[in-house]
């Protein structure tokens, strides 16, 4: 406890870095997964291929991705961009199927009514399908957020500053307190992400809270 209080500044700095590395990819990944999930629903033949491919991306070991990306992108090994991109890939892997499921769960009668009322394809997705998919997409985002917070900690192995540093440093120094601080900080951060996503979804879906 004393150690944690003594190092509060460092913990907060690393937590903010961690939040960026896990949170920005969440937003980027969602922006990519939305059109991909929509595409998967448009055509039956693309549905299986696309969802399997994106799903498989999640199986690439994160350490391998952190190390390989610089050689593919031409970035420096210590550039946080590598982590951002890797985490975006994982987010896309988790969210594409969720978005596809969310969009396909819209009641056919509702969709049909929208088409009959003269909504174009884009307007329909924006005004009808997407709002109705929010609860499903938010559930997927919560999973992706926790997963991102967890995976980002691995990046300390390639020297990117975030909360994972306490895990590797504590291990190297055989100092369990520091490891515990890292774990607790990660859990708290994941909790914050979870609450933020829940809160946004709550604000965006007033109709789900009415009683019949």
């Amino acid at each position: 406890m004393t150690w944690a209080l003594d190092h509060l500044d460092e913990i907060l700095t690393r937590a903010v870095q961690h939040a960026w590395l896990a949170g920005l990819p969440l937003v980027l990944g969602l922006l990519i997964a939305l059109p991909l999930g929509w595409l998967a629903n448009r055509k039956a033949w693309i549905h299986g291929t696309l969802l399997t491919t994106t799903g498989l991306l999640y199986t690439i070991p994160s350490l391998a991705l952190f190390i390989l990306l610089p050689s593919i992108l031409g970035t420096k090994i210590l550039d946080p961009v590598n982590v951002i991109i890797a985490m975006t890939v994982y987010t896309v892997a988790l969210l594409t199927r969720t978005v596809a499921d969310g969009l396909s769960a819209v009641d056919p009668a509702t969709r049909q009514a929208a088409v009959a009322m003269g909504f174009g394809p884009v307007a329909r997705v924006r005004s009808v399908d997407l709002p109705l998919a929010i609860p499903v997409v938010a559930a997927g985002l919560r999973v992706a957020a926790v997963s991102n917070v967890s995976i980002v900690s691995v990046a300390s192995l390639i020297g990117i500053s975030q909360l994972g540093y306490f895990l590797t440093d504590g291990y190297a120094r055989t100092f369990p307190t520091e490891v515990w601080v890292g774990i607790v900080a990660c859990v708290l951060l994941a909790l914050v992400f979870d609450l933020v996503i829940l809160g946004i979804a709550w604000l965006l879906t007033p109709w789900t809270r009415v009683r019949a």
Binding site: T110, Q112, A113, G118, V128, L132, W207
Partner: peptide, 17 residues
């Protein structure tokens, strides 16, 4: 064409949101 026609279906098809 569609905006010039009212359309009513069995389960109303209202927008739940």
């Amino acid at each position: 064409l569609r905006r010039g026609m009212g359309y009513v279906i069995q389960h109303a098809g209202l927008f739940p949101h």
